[in-house]
Measured scan of single mutants.
Amino acid sequence: EDYYQILGVPRNASQKEIKKAYYQLAKKYHPDTNKDDPKAKEKFSQLAEAYEVLSDEVKRKQYDA
Rank of each mutant, 00 (worst) to 15 (best):
H30V: 05
F44Y: 15
D56K: 02
D2K: 03
K19W: 12
Q5T: 13
Y4I: 00
A21M: 08
D37I: 06
A50I: 12
E52Q: 09
I18M: 04
E1F: 15
A48W: 13
S55N: 07
Y22N: 01
E49V: 10
A48K: 13
Q5K: 14
D64Q: 02
D36M: 10
Q62Y: 08
Y23S: 14
S45V: 12
Q15H: 10
Q24G: 08
L7P: 00
Y29M: 09
Q5A: 12
Q46N: 09
A48N: 12
P31L: 05
S55Q: 06
T33L: 13
L54S: 00
R11I: 06
E57S: 08
V9S: 02
K43W: 11
P38Q: 10
Y29G: 04
K59Q: 06
V53M: 04
A50P: 01
E42G: 07
I6N: 02
A40T: 09
F44L: 10
E17Q: 11
R60W: 00
V53K: 02
Y63R: 03
P31S: 11
R60P: 01
S55V: 06
A40I: 13
Y22A: 03
K61S: 05
V58N: 14
K27H: 11
K19A: 15
G8S: 05
Q5M: 13
R11C: 09
S55R: 07
A26Y: 15
N34E: 08
E49H: 07
E49M: 11
T33V: 14
A40D: 05
E52L: 10
N34D: 08
Y51K: 02
P10M: 07
A26E: 09
K35L: 12
H30M: 08
Y63Q: 02
V58R: 07
K41W: 14
K20I: 15
A26V: 13
K43N: 05
K28N: 09
I6Q: 05
F44N: 04
A21C: 05
T33F: 14
S45L: 12
E52T: 09
E57H: 08
Q15G: 10
Y29L: 13
A65H: 11
S45R: 11
V58F: 11
P10Y: 05
Y29W: 10
A21H: 08
D2Q: 04
Y51M: 04
N34R: 07
K61A: 14
P38R: 07
D32M: 06
L7H: 01
G8V: 03
D32T: 11
Q46R: 14
D2W: 05
E52G: 11
